[in-house]
Amino acid sequence: MAEIQKNYDTYAKFNTRVFALSMDSSRQSANLVRKLGLSFTLLCDDDKKVIDLFDLRNPLEHDGIAYPATFIISPAGNICYRSLDGTAKRVDLTDELAFLEQLQKDSGHVQPARPKKAWILPSPKDDWRISMNMISVGNFADWKNLFLLPINYLKILVSKIKSR
């Protein structure tokens, strides 16, 4: 989210409006907008209609949250870019923005077969949730993420030392 926010103007430059959707309520989403200072709109699909429309419901987590994914929809209404992501590995925004730049020059530009992915460091809170998913519902989809746990704590330690 924060990285998208940093690139918000670049998306606008490439004729693209940004929206992020989850099953969170309006109140939860509004809190997130305030907390992260987001300029783009969050969409609230609390009845999961859109998540199901895109077949992105992950039934193993909390009765069905959305798998992380990104779609870019052209003004004609069809998908011109798609990335199906994970907790620890997401679409590389540099790759996505390069695609949008090319699309602006050539409306027939086609997405590379597999978009580039970038590793991200999930928060300790995410690690906790992933651990609980493994223990309570047997969902091991993001087990690789746990290897990043020590790096998370190291990162926090370094930032605390730096802030002193």
Binding site: R17, D24, A66, Y67, T70
Partner: peptide, 10 residues
């Protein structure tokens, strides 16, 4: 305009 629609866990 294009629409970027990102699904996140929330």
């Amino acid at each position: 305009q294009n629409v970027k629609l990102m699904f996140y866990r929330g």
